[in-house]
Design a binder for these strands. Structure first.
Length: 473
RNA sequence: GGCCCGUUGGAGAAGUGGCUUAACUCACAUGCCUUUCACGCAUGCAUUCACGGGUUCAAAUCCCGUACGGGUCACCA
């Protein structure tokens, strides 16, 4: 039975790459009928602690429908699921390794290590801990401990040979043991290092698949060595390629393209984001790419995960999101628009008007936040676009505009049907067709070359305002 | 710098020795549709798989080297 875990640090934000890890981790668990997806919070770094950050993680997973079977707020048989609450369970494993002579006490000071490191750097050599404390006698060790000298516990790395592990994505990888430092298991403050805690926790929680970014590829041999020394069964590793932006650069906080919440704020639907992000580094077998979470659950396979970094492409996200918006229920869609309208300072008191306004754009938006842009463009104020002005100049539009104006001013009940009639009659009367008919009318009333259905648009603007605009042309 | 990983069109990718004269999706271009725009539909867009060499009757697919990109080298997670 598969058991996977998503183990984020509570930093206050969920990075897009992190979200993808969560999605794949979830999908791998769901690929097994009895699989379990577990949330574990890795909060051992008190200095980086951020208020409310754990809640952000809960909230994000909820928004994305990545429901977990075990976790801090839902319980489970393998808790606690917050690492800081597990702090005391690690040291005994380290001591066990000391007992077996797989690990040893190290009393080297930070200064000594720092000096060695600098020395090595000056000689342009790689620094690896020299194992100075490895050969201390039992008496010496007892002595130092008793006199209160701080110590760490390090694992002994075998002196020769190579360590080999297998990753489901990258295949078999071997690293010379001479490259691997005697890693610290327990820090001088008594707490475990991240890698050590991870191995212990994953084992205690019976995790079968470890899914993480490929930045762990080079430290995985250390994990392998630990599993071996502890006599634990090694889990299946799934390392994921990075998500980057064009040119291989990292997604950045400053440019607002790094966090899940950035995209939600911009009006992308969580379901669409999940769908799109799942496509970064993995591809479905068929040609259908719009896939709900349950469809992803059925189709996902580790085999189809790619090795090379994936570029986050906002254009494709736009397309995916627009597909979801189009499929959405009208009422639900309008509701989603409201916060953006309010933020844009748009009066939403007239419910009927607001509804019509929102639906006018339902099939045209790539993200909901764009709706205010459209409002500014052609409802709030009349701005004649450059290209539109050029069109008026290059074509003979005067007659059409004049007739259209007459038809509009004759309308008694200002609604889209009557406006459409006025529009049709203008065509009949002037005998103008196609572009030359529509464009002058569109430009004279909205100032733009492109836009949503004209009658439905004009209905939402005052009759007087529309006539005033035509006057100007 | 050592070690590890990667490199198929603008982007996501399929492809694991012959079925590939390299799928599919986004973007882009053109056309059709709608008396406009958008939607939708159709067509086009890599003679070639970073480069060089090798193995083979046959290579994007296997091997070696080079270049470029990324990761990693903490008492951080």
């Amino acid at each position: 039975m598969r058991r996977t875990r998503f183990a984020p640090s509570p930093t206050g934000f969920i990075h897009v790459g992190n979200l993808r890890t969560a999605i794949y981790t979830y999908l791998i668990a769901r690929g097994d009928k009895n699989g379990k997806f577990i949330l574990r919070i890795e909060d051992t770094d008190r200095e980086r602690f951020v208020e409310g950050a754990v809640e952000v993680i809960y909230e994000t997973l909820k928004q994305c429908n990545l429901t977990y079977d075990e976790g801090p707020d839902v319980g489970g048989d393998y808790g606690p699921y917050i690492q800081s609450e597990r702090k005391n369970s690690y040291k005994k494993y380290a001591l066990e390794l000391v007992e077996k002579e797989e690990a040893y006490y190290c009393f080297c000071t930070l200064e000594r290590l720092q000096n060695l490191r600098e020395e090595a750097q000056n000689k342009k050599e790689n620094f690896i801990y020299d194992g100075c404390c490895k050969s201390l006698s039992k008496a010496e060790i007892a002595n130092k401990i008793n006199s209160g000298i701080p110590y760490v516990i390090r694992q002994k790395t075998p002196e020769d040979n190579v360590t080999t592990f297998k990753c489901e994505v990258y295949g078999q990888i071997s690293i010379n043991n001479s490259e691997i430092e005697d890693q610290i298991l327990i820090k001088s403050d008594g707490y475990p290092t991240y890698n050590f805690a991870n191995v212990i926790d994953d084992n205690l929680m019976k995790i079968t698949h470890v899914v993480r970014g490929n930045e762990y590829l080079t430290s995985t041999p250390k994990y392998t060595l630990l599993y071996k020394a502890l006599g634990f069964v090694e889990p299946t590793y799934v390392h994921l390629p990075h998500v980057v932006k064009e040119g291989g650069k990292k997604l950045s906080k400053r440019e607002g393209d790094a966090y899940f919440s950035d995209f939600v704020k911009k009006g992308y639907l969580p379901t669409a984001i999940v769908n799109y992000v799942a496509l970064l580094g993995w591809s479905p077998e068929g040609k259908k790419e719009i896939l709900s979470l349950s469809e992803l659950e059925k189709q996902f396979s580790i085999k189809r995960i790619n090795k090379s970094p994936a570029v986050f492409d906002i254009q494709k996200l736009n397309w995916v999101n627009s597909q979801y918006l189009k499929k959405m229920d009208d009422i639900e869609f309008s509701k989603l628009c409201l916060p953006y309208l309010i933020e844009g300072g748009i009066d939403i008191n007239n419910q009927e008007w607001t509804n019509k306004f929102c639906l006018l754009f339902k099939d045209r938006l790539s993200s909901i936040s764009e709706i205010t842009k459209y409002y500014q463009q052609f409802l709030a104020e009349f701005i004649l676009e450059e290209e539109a002005a050029a069109f008026l100049k290059e074509n003979d539009c005067g007659e059409v505009i004049k007739v259209f104006k007459g038809k509009l001013s004759a309308i008694e009940t200002w609604n889209s049907e009557n406006i459409k009639t006025a529009l049709n009659e203008t065509g009949i009367e002037t005998k103008v067709k196609g572009k030359l008919l529509f464009m002058p009318m569109r430009i004279a009333t909205t100032g733009m070359l492109h836009g949503p259905d004209l009658p439905r648009s004009l209905e939402l603007i005052d009759k007087d305002e529309v006539l005033r605009r035509i006057e100007k042309c």
